[in-house]
Amino acid sequence: MARPDSVLVISQLFNPDFGGLSTRAYGLALLFRSLGCRVTVLTTMPHYPDGYPREDSCPRGDGLDLVRLKLRLLPYRGFLNRVINFSYFPLACCRELFNSHGDYDLAVSVGFNPFSAIPLMFNGFKYVVDLSDLWPDTIAMEVRNPPLRLVLQLVGRRVNQYVFERSTGFILLNPNMHELLRRFYRLSEVKWTWIVNPADEGLFRPAKSREELRERLGIDQDSFVVLYHGVFGMLQGLPLVVRAFGKAFSSIRGRKQPVLYLIGHGEELGKVLRAVSELPPRVRERVKVLPRMPREVVANYVRAADLGLVPISASDALIYIVTPAKSIEYLASGVPILAPRGSFIG
């Protein structure tokens, strides 16, 4: 396929919202722009995780033509709210695309599910599906009722099949997803490419002076900094991370005392804070839970860290297809990572 002159990227979340979907869409949009394409992004106002649009937090366009829909969505908490949000957004996009009459050489649906591709399909665009997750199997983990979980998987895969068969191709986050596509959907000829989550190397780069950076951030120079940044969601299992840190703290020997930094927001925040409150006082003071912050500031914390956490709480069948954006940002910053066995690191 010839290089497109104009590209439409459609994503429910986009910079500056926190999380893998926002980072993925932003990175792909910048990648197409760097190839000389005129890039339009159809997305929402920043609203994660409470669903309220925040007009005052929209950053510059970075050379992108941003079309932001002002939608009032439900809080990203629980299975039902997510399904409603991911269904409502494509309906709003159908209306926007029908009214705008835009002409694009290629459209890219970015997301954890194929719903974003539906308005592209109905408006006659040639589109590719970017898969950074395998919906509905990952979200099905939140459904405790086995029959309901089975129905969700069957219906979700039927929708996937319909969208996938009509797509021009796929952009995969992880090459392992190619095998799952063939196994679950029996696609005889899959046109695909592999694009890992890009890191903004202008922000995420090794620190010239970690001591100076820590002094600026108020981090103890004699601490061993363990860092997590991103969404506080079910897939991350952060309450378990906090409890594991508490158990490991007393057995760690060395001059540098460990300190755990958790930066972000999400539906599991309350459980994370509860897990922290249950720690012994001397351990509790070594856990810092910080709110979401601009990526420029997050990058400084990453560059000041000694170890980056990439927790993934998923089934063995799915864990190895997920490559979180934070893992690439840690590596770009020269920070070693700790991730579950069997995940993207092998």
Rank of each mutant, 00 (worst) to 15 (best):
Arg157Ser: 09
Leu28Cys: 02
Glu201Ser: 07
Ala140Glu: 07
Pro198Asp: 05
Lys70Leu: 01
Thr323Met: 05
Gly334Ala: 06
Leu172Val: 06
Asn145Tyr: 11
Leu181Ser: 04
Pro146Asp: 08
Leu290Ser: 09
Leu181Met: 14
Val289Trp: 10
Asp316Asn: 11
Ile10His: 04
Val129Gly: 07
Ile118Lys: 09
Gly254Ser: 08
Asn113Gly: 03
Asn300Gly: 09
Pro75Val: 00
Gly233Glu: 03
Arg282Tyr: 13
Ser109Cys: 10
Gln257Val: 15
Val310Pro: 04
Pro49Arg: 02
Cys58Met: 15
Tyr76Asp: 03
Phe170Lys: 08
Arg186Ala: 07
Glu211Lys: 13
Lys326Thr: 05
Lys208Met: 01
Gly63Asn: 07
Gly246Asn: 04
Met293Gln: 15
Ala305Asn: 09
Ser333Arg: 05
Thr193Gly: 13
Ser116Ala: 15
Met1Asn: 10
Ser87Thr: 15
Ser87Phe: 06
Ser132Gln: 12
Ala107Tyr: 08
Glu212Asn: 13
Ser315Lys: 14
Phe164Ala: 04
Arg144Glu: 14
Tyr261Met: 05
Pro4Ile: 01
Ala325Ser: 15
Cys37His: 05
Ile312Gln: 13
Arg95Asn: 00
Asp130Ala: 03
Pro294Met: 08
Pro258Ser: 02
Ile345Met: 15
Leu173Val: 12
Arg186Gly: 00
Arg149Thr: 00
Pro239Glu: 07
Arg303Ile: 03
Asn99Lys: 14
Met234Lys: 13
Ser11Met: 03
Pro59His: 03
Gly156Met: 02
Ser313Glu: 11
Ser116Ile: 00
Gly237Val: 06
Leu269Met: 12
Ile345Ser: 15
Tyr185Gly: 01
Glu165Gly: 09
Gly266Ala: 05
Glu189Ala: 14
Glu179Phe: 09
Leu240Ile: 05
Ser34Ala: 13
Glu329Met: 10
Val289Tyr: 10
Ala304Ile: 02
Met121Asp: 12
Gly61Ile: 02
Leu97Arg: 03
Pro119Phe: 06
Lys70Thr: 06
Leu338Ser: 12
Asp17Ile: 02
Leu42Cys: 02
